[in-house]
Amino acid sequence: MVKVDGLYKSYGSLPVLKGVSFEVAKGEVVCIIGPSGGGKSTLLRCINHLEEPDAGVVEIDGESVRPATRNPLHRERHLNRMRSEIGMVFQRFNLFPHRTALENVVEGLTTVKKIPRNEAREIAKQYLTRVGLADKINEYPSRLSGGQQQRVAIARALAMQPKVMLFDEPTSALDPELVGEVLSVMRDLAENGMTMLAVTHELGFAREVANRVMFIDDGQIIEEGPPKQVLSNPQHPRTASFISKVL
């Protein structure tokens, strides 16, 4: 479903990704862990080309995310279509503050998918109900708690019916008591067969929900494997020291 092969990315002279390769199968849940500054966010942002990788391939369902043509118009159209198939959830939610919860979800449906407004509203209501926010659809983001905002953001991404969902530390900006509601939505998604790639430091979640855990440091995959192995019995000293610090 997701194939990343030989991904390189530098900012100026600072190399951030140094040849990252892995695959995620359909319905698989992969959690990425690793110290701050290791390149985890950059990896996710390269997958949907919010950042353009310097080298390497990203394929979704066998189709390259990088446009094959030089024509700027065709490039943009290709990228927009690929991005609409890759859902992304950000650490700081990034909801549109001038739009209600419902309108946040409706936006992509009408603007990108060209679904008629009334139909889009019905679809948006379904997704907001699914994340447990049926009673908040007309609230502006500023009136919602962090956990509720993040659930709207998940609904906004899901409504596009993506083939894969990327999560970049979705609970890091939340008060501890609000983490659970977001994780439970993610767990629900995983159980329903969504392909997921999630950067998270919720090791309990990774242990229970992930099929695989990847430890990334210094722009490289240091270690990967089933959660039990990586989290309980890490092979690499850097993984061990990281896990002992998070716990």
Binding site: E76, R83, R92, N94, E107, T111
Partner: peptide, 19 residues
């Protein structure tokens, strides 16, 4: 983050600007 969120759901640069 606003531009990124808009682009991540597949909006074009000008759609993101305008909306």
């Amino acid at each position: 983050g606003q531009m990124e969120a808009a682009r991540s759901i597949g909006m074009s640069y000008f759609q993101a600007m305008r909306r």
